[in-house]
């Protein structure tokens, strides 16, 4: 564990608490993509399957994995059941097949061994890198977003961005690298570039998140 990864994980935790806060305080899931949230459940369940297969990394690792699976399922419940009436499916129209299909193909092509769990692990890494697409698509379509929603997306983007110095640090100190995680992580962070530009130049200056018309 190094400081980059620790702060990356903390940003990831923070993103979930911000999301819960947004839903519960505004009593609404307006502006959120249910599809993105479903994709995160798929990502966590397929990657953290090793919890149930006897792989033990650390107490920290296990607690975080359980938290991410549990909280992402709870968010689906909030969006699907408790605040269902505030969700607008006509805005959330990104076709997830375009994300799941290619991720599955990439998982089958690039993995560390051709076994069920390794393919699923690899699939989850690729799917995570693009899971934010439906959410960014809603921002693009509506051209604006609530400030708290942009804090959520920013925290999520910062999480994977901090994994990049973590990998560089690990390469120097441990001498090895995980090419699948690194390539997907770079793509994932890159997808946030436009969003971050508007976030840093508008939201953090106290202005509303609005895309140029």
């Amino acid at each position: 564990m190094n400081i980059f990864r620790l702060f990356g994980d903390l940003a990831h935790l923070a993103s979930i608490f911000i999301l819960l806060q947004k839903i519960q305080v505004s009593r609404s899931c307006r502006g959120l993509s249910f599809k993105t949230q479903v994709l995160y459940v798929v990502v966590f369940v397929s990657r953290y399957l090793d919890l149930f297969l006897g792989t033990w990394v650390s107490f920290y690792n296990t607690v975080m994995k359980l938290f991410f699976i549990g909280s992402s399922c709870y968010i689906l419940y909030l969006m699907r059941v408790q605040f269902r009436s505030t969700y607008d499916p006509t805005l959330d129209t990104f076709r997830v097949e375009y994300l799941v299909g290619p991720s599955l193909v990439l998982g089958l092509l690039f993995n560390y061994s051709f076994t069920f769990t390794e393919i699923l692990w690899s699939f989850s890494i690729f799917l995570e890198s693009v899971a934010i697409f439906p959410q960014l698509f809603i921002l693009q379509r509506t051209g604006e977003a609530e400030t708290i929603t942009t804090h959520y997306i920013a925290a999520l983007g910062i999480y994977r961005a901090l994994y990049i110095p973590n990998w560089i640090y690990r390469y120097w100190t441990e001498g090895s690298a995980d090419p699948i995680a690194i390539v997907a992580g770079l793509v994932q962070t890159g997808l946030y570039a436009d969003f971050f530009y508007v976030y840093f130049t508008k939201v953090l200056q106290g202005k509303r998140f609005e895309l140029p018309a």
Binding site: M64, K65, S113, T115, E118, I125, R170, E174, D178, A181
Partner: peptide
Amino acid sequence: TGKGRGKDEL
């Protein structure tokens, strides 16, 4: 499993 650094990451 085990190959690849990412296995101990989240």
